[in-house]
Design a protein around this nucleic acid. Structure first.
Length: 109
DNA sequence: GTAGTGACATGGC
DNA sequence: TGCCATGCCACTA
């Protein structure tokens, strides 16, 4: 099932793919880049369908650097493993040096 | 067209 | 960024 509707979701996937390796971004940052700062929730909802789209959803966390979506990845520490594998330090579902690895599309792009 | 839902954000204490 | 309450926008049924 492929909805070629170019909806808000697809845009989220595009930005998520643009996230550099070893960097992370927040739902609000993506939403803001898309012009929908208030729709940060939709960003996470969109990533829910990122499975199979080569979208590094594990690089997308909430504003606090907390791995809120790890439950949707595997249900365990898969998300944390992926982040650590890229050089990102994660402690108790929370990204350390979040400011340091944070990547803002609206600024970098 | 209405109602329900959601991987968040922000303001206040 | 400690916790609670409210708002918001887009999507699905």
């Amino acid at each position: 099932m492929k909805s070629e509707t170019l909806s808000f979701f697809d845009k989220v996937f595009e930005v998520a793919r643009l996230v550099p390796h070893g960097r992370v971004t927040s739902y609000g940052a993506i939403a803001k880049y898309l012009g929908a700062t208030r729709s940060a929730r939709m960003v996470g909802y969109a990533l829910n369908g990122s499975d199979g789209k080569d979208v590094p959803a594990h690089r997308v966390v909430n504003r606090k650097g907390l791995l809120t979506g790890k439950h949707h990845f595997d249900g365990t520490n898969l998300m944390q493993q992926l982040l650590e594998s890229e050089g990102i330090k994660v402690k108790d579902n929370q990204i350390q040096d979040f400011r340091n690895v944070f990547w803002d599309p609206s600024k970098e792009l």
